[in-house]
Design a protein around this nucleic acid. Structure first.
Lengths: 307, 307
DNA sequence: ATGCACTGTGCGCTATTCGCATACAATGTG
DNA sequence: CACATTGTATGCGAATAGCGCACAGTGCAT
């Protein structure tokens, strides 16, 4: 069987159902000429008469009745399939696979998932945490969240928010620091984040004009941000951490911000999508929710310490 | 959902199955350009990305996986349906509905059905006996058998054989007739067949040159041929009957042919088909069998009486 | 009988689509 | 970093879809 035109089945079924070429054409919104010709071609393809025509009546042959019964099922199934696809393309539904870095995923994305699943009960979520860049299409990732500073290669990233970096310390250590300018801060023990490209050199700025660059002396270097946080909480030294990680410790007083009047370079929160022409609503819905969450800064800029 | 092109489903499925546009194109025997474009159009129709493409890998999206699963089923069902139709169009199979006159149907067609059903076990037969002309397509008749002399209206009839008309009588009556020329036969009691157009005037012929026309005097007129036969068997008079009806009585001696050297006009046995482009094999097979049966004349022409 | 309305189909025509060949950007692979 | 391979964009010819029109056949109401 070498590839018979499936579209003609719809015409044929319409004629049988309507009992007339003319009515079928009206129902299909095309000329009766076309219906007649299409059915004729279907018959030619199958080498069978499917319909016996009089000017007054159209009656299916045995082969016609056979094919009609099958075609009705086929067409209904096709309609169902298209309907299902349409459902996915118009409503947030289905499984959403999100890739995110470990720290941001744990601190921000994961808590947001509860709300997302509550808002869109037809969605389920797979959160894939990884700090490495993974192949989006190979892993069926719908949206990947990249935090920090993008290298030029990821062109198709879209910035949905920013995060600030805060110099923090455990309260006991913070009490020993009285400086209100960064100049001598490099005398303090520093926990370097080995995951950053430049973990030691930090550019402080204040009020649009005051700028200082300080090279910290690492008391220790840890290449995973959550571990840096843990060490900092334990009083191991100062460290620079993103706001979304230290919001809670600052709130509870487990950490204290040092030099709160000075800002460090802020980074971007980006979404990256696999190259697709159309974006499913589940992705749009989630990104909208994440963007709202991320635009509401967890720490007011230039706020004071919470101790 | 306004009529999505079903043919593209095959292309899409081929790509997913092959995991590559190029391999799918090879499998389909067309260019990869076409496959790419067709899938792109399907996606445009559905307003959805079905495939995520890299030059190295092609992976279906969630909608794509959904549609793939459905499409595989749809395509398989379509193939099944076409296969079933092909079965009907190539092999004698299915229900064969035959229309025939009461007399010929009873005497000739009905006995033949046993052989037909034995030869083609995949066929079942509906024999519709009626002396009136019925609407072939309204009654789903595959082939109608007309016996006798067609009026000009039935153009699409095909002659598959002939029958002879025989002047017969019961043996007791036949013994009283000694004539060997038709001239005085009109003195005998005659049973007229009211179903004929001209039941009384008969044209006898012998050996290509001897011709006589006789007008019989009806002792009785009966408008159903089988009843004429019954009256003749009962000795009610001479009558003219088709060979297929009197073959058995002549064989057993229940009837005797009168003037066996003289012939009466013979009639045709015709098939009439509903106007269809293609003829199903079940019809062809049956007509072939009927033609063979009918071509073998039940009574040798110019044979002698069997008394 | 006889218009008459209506059926399905054939014909000429145009717009769209199918399909091919070629060229090209992107991406792994050695 | 050359190289092969992938999917896509482009231009072009052929096939198809679809339209309007005209026409023969058929049932219905006179």
């Amino acid at each position: 069987m070498e590839t018979i035109n499936l579209n003609r089945l719809a015409y044929f079924v319409a004629v049988v159902d309507a009992g007339s070429f003319t009515r079928a054409a009206a129902r299909l919104g095309i000329t009766k000429t076309v219906v007649s010709q299409q059915v004729a071609r279907l018959e030619a393809d199958l080498q069978t008469s499917l319909l016996l025509r009089t000017t007054r009546r159209v009656e299916p042959t045995e082969a016609g009745r056979l094919l009609h019964a099958r075609s009705v099922i086929i067409l209904r199934e096709a309609e169902d399939a298209f309907g299902e696809v349409a459902e996915v393309t118009t409503n947030p539904i289905g499984t959403l696979r999100i890739a995110a870095p470990n720290d941001f995923g744990t601190s921000t994305v994961a808590p947001l998932l509860a709300k997302f699943c509550r808002t869109y009960p037809a969605c389920s979520v797979d959160l894939v945490l990884s700090d490495a860049k993974i192949d989006l299409i190979a892993h069926h990732i719908d949206v990947s969240i990249r935090v920090g500073w993008l290298d030029d290669s990821s062109q198709q990233a879209r910035r949905i928010g920013a995060f600030r970096q805060l110099l923090v310390a455990a309260p006991d250590l913070a009490r020993t620091i009285s400086a209100d300018v960064p100049d001598n801060i490099d005398q303090q023990p520093f926990i370097a984040n080995g995951a950053l490209r430049e973990p030691l050199v930090w550019h402080f700025s204040r009020a649009d004009f005051d700028r200082r660059t300080v090279r910290m002396r690492p008391a220790m270097t840890i290449n995973a941000t959550p571990a840096v946080l843990a060490a900092t909480l334990a009083g191991g030294g100062l460290s620079v951490l993103p706001d979304f990680l230290v919001a809670d410790p600052l709130q509870t007083g487990a950490l204290v911000q040092i030099l709160p009047d000075w800002s460090l370079p802020s980074g971007g929160i980006h979404t990256v999508y696999p190259a697709a022409r159309f974006r499913p609503p589940k992705v749009t819905a989630f990104v909208a929710m994440l963007e709202a969450e991320v635009k509401r800064p967890p720490i007011a800029p230039h706020g004071s310490t919470t101790s």
